[in-house]
């Protein structure tokens, strides 16, 4: 039976997998999402996966590698648990609409990390969308994005907002898309330490660059678009293997920084930080 997931406004259809869908991804599952998904994934269980014959295009230096594969691409996923042979390998059509996944591990969800994130990111790159390392919060219908790398305070921010009426769409990774001139923010299943995520979406009103240099007081300093775009890029997951899409991501982030107010936010680790942001938004 086909399964459908919708992440960041992208519909993924999965065929041929009987793996149980558990955890955060289950929140992004739905019936009848689309007669024709944006990305159709077909899974097959195999015992062996042959070595790639095409040129290595990108090595993440960790769990995945990208190769040329005739007129398509091939993503091999590795784990130390399964030796040198990839535990799954995906053949991806050039337009990203058809993905054949071979899985060596029984019960393994073919969409499982890192393939889900790689596919959605690659799909969004030429379509004015980008995933950002950030905590996303919907407060009173307004989307607020708190960006930062690991250790900058995304989880802390999520916990500060957690006890109020706001919806936290992710404490770690959020998708932003330009939809007919409106910048929308989407939750993703890819949560962080606080393990908070939802499929919520909202128009993006503010972006805050988390600044941990002053943790005792609340304050915001507006950033010029050039600096804002650079800060956004430093928190993005760009496709480094594709110069064209890399350029498109830079363009998207430049437009985003010019369209949505971006400020550097220092914050106290207490509820006054939430009140401060709400006050700043209302001003």
């Amino acid at each position: 039976m086909d399964r459908f997931f919708r992440i960041g406004g992208v519909t993924l259809g999965v065929r041929g997998s009987d793996a149980e869908v558990t955890g955060p991804l289950a929140k992004f599952m739905g019936d009848g999402l689309a007669a024709r998904p944006d990305i159709q994934i077909t899974a097959n269980h195999v015992h062996e996966i042959e070595p790639p014959s095409g040129r290595l295009l990108f090595d993440s230096a960790a769990v995945w590698k990208l190769y040329e594969d005739a007129d398509a691409h091939r993503i091999d996923c590795h784990s130390p648990l399964f030796g040198d042979m990839p535990y799954k390998s995906a053949r991806v059509s050039p337009d990203l609409r058809a993905v054949d996944v071979r899985v060596r591990v029984a019960g393994h969800d073919p969409l499982e990390f890192p393939l889900d994130e790689l596919l959605v990111n690659a799909y969004l790159a030429p379509r004015r969308g980008v995933e950002l390392h950030s905590c996303g919060i919907i407060d009173g219908g307004q989307g607020l994005l708190f960006i930062g790398n690991s250790g900058d305070g995304k989880t802390t921010t999520a916990r500060l907002w957690q006890n109020g009426p706001a919806e936290i769409v992710s404490d770690d990774r959020v998708i932003v898309r330009d939809e007919d001139g409106v910048w929308m923010m989407y939750g993703t299943p890819w949560h962080g330490e606080a393990e908070i995520c939802s499929a919520g979406r909202a128009p993006l009103r503010r972006i805050y660059v988390l600044d941990k240099s002053s943790r005792s007081r609340n304050g915001v300093t507006p950033l010029r678009p050039a600096e804002a775009a650079a800060r956004l890029f430093a928190c993005a997951f760009p496709p480094f293997h594709d110069a064209g899409d890399l350029g498109r991501i830079v363009d998207t982030l430049g437009d985003l920084a010019a369209s949505v107010p971006v400020g550097r936010l220092s914050f106290a680790n207490d509820p006054t930080a939430v009140a401060f942001v709400r006050q700043e938004l209302a001003a």
Binding site: S60, W64, F113, L118, N149, H191, A234, F237
Partner: peptide, 16 residues
Amino acid sequence: FPLRPEEAVLGFCKST
């Protein structure tokens, strides 16, 4: 600006 390639390439799962 500090870039963290180990984070940016989705090399590691974040869910610890």
